[in-house]
Amino acid sequence: DCLSIHQLAAQGDVCQVAVHLNKDCSLLNKQDDRGFTPLMWAAAFGEKAVVDYLLAEGADPKTVAWERESALTLASMGGFVDIVKSLLALGVDINTYDWNGGTPILYAVRGNHIQCVQELLDRGADLTIESDSGYSPTALAVALGHKKIQKVLEEHVLQLYSPD
C-alpha cells in the first residue's frame, strides 16, 4: 500500500497496477517528480506485462520526462527488445534524444545490447546522430570495445550502400 503506481509498475505487479488505476484513472500517465510515468518505470525495469497492460489501457508512449528521457530510451538502455518492439509499433520517435544527446540506439550500444541495436537498425534508427560529446553509435561501439555491435553497425552501413 505504500508503493506508488510507479513503483508498482516497476515491480511488475499487473494486478496491483490495475487496482490502483481502477481507483484513480488519472494515475495512468502520472508523472513523478522527475517526469517519469508508470510506463517509463515499467520499461526501465523490463516489466513487459505491465508495459503491455499500460499501453492497452491507453498510456501515452510518447511522453518524455523532464530531461527528455523516454520509455524507448529506457527500454533500449536495459536491452529489453520486446518492449522496444511494442513501443516502436506505436509510432514513438525512434531518434528521440535526451539530456546528453542520447538516442535509443546510442543507449543500446552503450549497454552492449546487440538484439536491441539490430531491432533499432531494422526499424530505421539514424546512425549519424551523435551524443553531445560527439560519439556516433559506431564511434561509441569502437570506444567501448563492443566488437560484435561494431560489426553489426558496419554491416548495416555496407548494406545501405550495396547496389542490391
Partner: peptide
C-alpha cells in the same frame, strides 16, 4: 546504472569516462 524502486530510473551519461571527440 543501478535501478532502485526508491528513485526514478535514470539514464547514464552516454560517454562517461570516454575522451571527448
Amino acid at each position: 546504472s543501478q535501478l532502485s524502486l526508491y528513485c526514478s530510473p535514470s539514464l547514464p551519461n552516454i560517454t562517461l569516462g570516454l575522451p571527448a571527440t
